[in-house]
């Protein structure tokens, strides 16, 4: 991975973190969290940890779906 790619994917991670903190809507926060995960994946691939990459890529949406369960319950209740 050369310097341009490190800069591009690092900028994606930082941009996603800032957008997650700034935005007020819960769905906007979850979408920005997806950008953070997308920026981290090439760093995992660059080390050659393919099993960790596959496991992390399948666990990250699971965590998002758990949070969505709470959001849906809250929308139904109120």
């Amino acid at each position: 991975m050369n310097e341009l790619l490190i800069l591009v994917f690092g900028a994606m991670v930082v941009l996603g973190a800032i957008a997650t903190i700034i935005s007020r809507d819960l769905f906007d926060k979850l979408i920005s969290l997806g950008i953070i995960v997308a920026g981290i994946m090439p760093f995992l691939a660059d080390r050659g940890l393919l099993d960790v990459l596959a496991a992390t890529a399948l666990i990250a949406p699971l965590s998002t779906i758990f949070i969505l369960m709470a959001i849906r319950r809250k929308k139904d209740g109120s």
């Binding site: 979850l30 997806g34 691939a45 596959a54 890529a57 399948l58 990250a60 949406p61 998002t64 969505l68």
Partner: peptide, 26 residues
């Protein structure tokens, strides 16, 4: 494109499936 390994396509497919599932759930 980052890793020339035959198992890389499995990992990329896993990430693709997971990300699409997340978008659909949202």
């Amino acid at each position: 494109l980052l890793i020339p390994h035959p198992l890389a396509i499995v990992a990329a497919a896993a990430y693709f499936v997971g990300s699409t599932l997340e978008s659909n759930a949202i």
